[in-house]
């Protein structure tokens, strides 16, 4: 007994060092393994509050840019509307019936209050939380394309797993054909992402537009992603397909959170199918 106490006394700093180091490694490994880090994230009262305060000052300098983005999006949406109006000329027989419409997605406005893009695994912080109806695994987009998926939420804040992250895998497809692939990031350039798992039958061209595939329950189909920058075709297989984003991930302001109202239904159906 005497020996043990002597041992502990002699190595007490070393033991403290080891214990704290184990804690740190535990957080690190939890962060890398699980999709959600339970404890260490910036969606809490203090960190979120500080980011929010600083952002409200910074925001002022980006108003012009934000306005520009709004005008661009308005123009794009107006063009889409115009295209619909020109379709079949059956206005005369149109009956307004509210049951005809059904809403699958709901958009919530939010603001990025902290943005990272230089590390291997990047996260954003938003100024909206559980209070505004946010949950885990909701998609985040802006007028120019996908941004990420919500990872942690607290009462007033939320963190987002950016597409610039090694854990981010987003289902995308070519705009002109139905070939699906997965959007990943190799950690080199924040403007260039990669697509993997594109079948070799797909015909790619430089400058082809990439949009979200809608195979997952997170993003609606057809949200913009980027254009193909270059690709290699070796051994009868697409080796590396680089996509340059429409979005500038280094300057994000207002964003929209996409809530899929039928996610539970789809998920439950898929679960029962697997279990049978």
């Amino acid at each position: 007994m005497q020996q043990i106490i002597y041992f502990i006394r002699k190595f007490r700093y070393f033991l403290l060092f080891i214990i704290l180091e184990i804690f740190a490694f535990y957080f690190t490994i939890q962060h890398h393994t699980y999709h959600k880090s339970k404890f260490v994230n910036s969606a809490n009262f203090i960190t979120g509050g500080i980011y929010n305060k600083v952002n409200s000052i910074n925001e002022f300098f980006h108003l012009k840019h934000e306005n520009q983005l709004l005008i661009e999006e308005n123009t794009r949406l107006k063009n889409l509307l115009e295209r619909k109006l020109n379709s079949p000329n059956d206005k005369i027989f149109l009956i307004e019936d509210s049951t005809k419409y059904f809403q699958k997605y709901n958009y919530i406005l939010g603001k990025v209050i902290n943005n990272n893009f230089t590390k291997r695994d990047n996260y954003l912080t938003l100024d909206k939380g559980i209070k505004n109806g946010l949950k885990n695994d909701l998609g985040v987009v802006n007028s120019k394309g996908v941004i990420g998926v919500i990872k942690n939420v607290s009462t007033n804040y939320a963190t987002v797993l950016s597409i610039l992250n090694s854990n981010s895998k987003i289902n995308v497809r070519l705009k002109n054909s139905n070939h699906f692939g997965t959007l990943v990031w190799n950690g080199k350039d924040s403007q260039i992402l990669q697509i993997i798992d594109i079948p070799r039958q797909a015909i790619l061209k430089k400058g082809d537009t990439i949009i979200t595939g809608g195979k997952s329950a997170i993003f609606p189909e057809g949200i913009l992603v980027g254009v193909i920058k270059d690709f290699h075709f070796d051994n009868n297989q697409y080796q590396q397909i680089n996509v340059s984003l429409f979005n500038d991930m280094t300057s994000l302001g207002y964003i929209q959170i996409v809530k899929n109202l039928q996610k539970e239904e789809q998920y439950q159906l898929e679960q029962t199918t697997i279990n049978e």
């Binding site: 804690f23 490694f25 957080f27 910036s42 203090i46 590390k119």
Partner: peptide, 11 residues
């Protein structure tokens, strides 16, 4: 906590 990096800086 601020940079969402697990326990990297702590270690």
């Amino acid at each position: 906590f601020f940079s969402n990096s697990g326990g990297i800086n702590a270690a």
